[in-house]
C-alpha cells in the first residue's frame, strides 16, 4: 500500500466552489478562512476565502491527499505562490456562468504552470446545465493551444462523488506524469 502523501491544489475564480469542493470530500473538519465579501460587483456572495482552505482525503489504496484551496482573486496571487510550493497537481474549478470562463481556466492553468507542467491538472466546469456554452470541447481546444493537455469534465462540486472523481482523475494524471518522467530517467 502506497503511504505517500500528495499535496493537491484547488484553484479557480471567486465563487467557482473551491471551499465547497474541499468541504464536500474532506475526512477531517475542513479548515476555512472565509471573511465577509465586500466586492459584490465581482460575485454576490456573503463570504470569500482570503487565506486558504484545507482538507484531507484517503484513497482506497491508502494514499493521503492533502487538499489546499486558494483564494480566487488575483490580488491574493501571493497565496497562490505560497500554496503551490510542493504541490503535485491542481484542480482548476471554473464557473460556466462567468463572462469568459475559458479564459478563466487558461489564466489559472498558466498561474500554476510550474506545478501543472503540461499535464498535472484537471478542469472541473460548473453550472454546465444552466449554461451549456462554452462546451467542454472549447475548453479542451483553448488549453491545447497553450500547450496543456488535461481532462476537462463537467462537475457539481456540491456533490461529493463529483469532487472525488476530479481528485481521482488528477491522481492518475500525476501518476502518469511520474511514470513518464521515471521512464525518461531510466
Amino acid at each position: 500500500m502506497d503511504q505517500r502523501e500528495y499535496k493537491l491544489i484547488f484553484t479557480g475564480s471567486m465563487g467557482a466552489g473551491k471551499t465547497t469542493a474541499i468541504a464536500a470530500v474532506s475526512e477531517v473538519a475542513p479548515l476555512c478562512t472565509d471573511v465577509q465579501n465586500t466586492d459584490h460587483s465581482e460575485f454576490a456572495k456573503a463570504t470569500t476565502t482570503t487565506g486558504l482552505d484545507y482538507g484531507e482525503v484517503t484513497l482506497p489504496g491508502g494514499q493521503v491527499l492533502r487538499l489546499f484551496g486558494t483564494p480566487g482573486q488575483t490580488r491574493f496571487r501571493f497565496m497562490w505562490d505560497i500554496l503551490g510550493k510542493g504541490a503535485l497537481g491542481v484542480v482548476v474549478l471554473v464557473d460556466n456562468s462567468r463572462p469568459d470562463p475559458v479564459r478563466d481556466a487558461c489564466d489559472y492553468v498558466q498561474a500554476f504552470s510550474n506545478v501543472i507542467a503540461g499535464t498535472r491538472a484537471v478542469i472541473g466546469v460548473g453550472r454546465c446545465d444552466a449554461y451549456p456554452t462554452p462546451t467542454l470541447e472549447e475548453y479542451d481546444d483553448a488549453l491545447k493551444a497553450i500547450g496543456v493537455n488535461v481532462p476537462v469534465i463537467s462537475a457539481d462540486v456540491r456533490q461529493r462523488e463529483h469532487v472525488l472523481t476530479l481528485v481521482d482523475i488528477l491522481f492518475y494524471q500525476i501518476e502518469a506524469a511520474e511514470t513518464v518522467s521515471s521512464g525518461a530517467v531510466a
Binding site: 478562512t33 471573511v35 476565502t49 487565506g51 483564494p71 490580488r75 497565496m79
Partner: peptide, 14 residues
Amino acid sequence: LSAMASSLLAINEA
C-alpha cells in the same frame, strides 16, 4: 499590503 493583511488575519483567526 491590504491583501496580505487579509490573508494573515484570516489564517490567524483559523
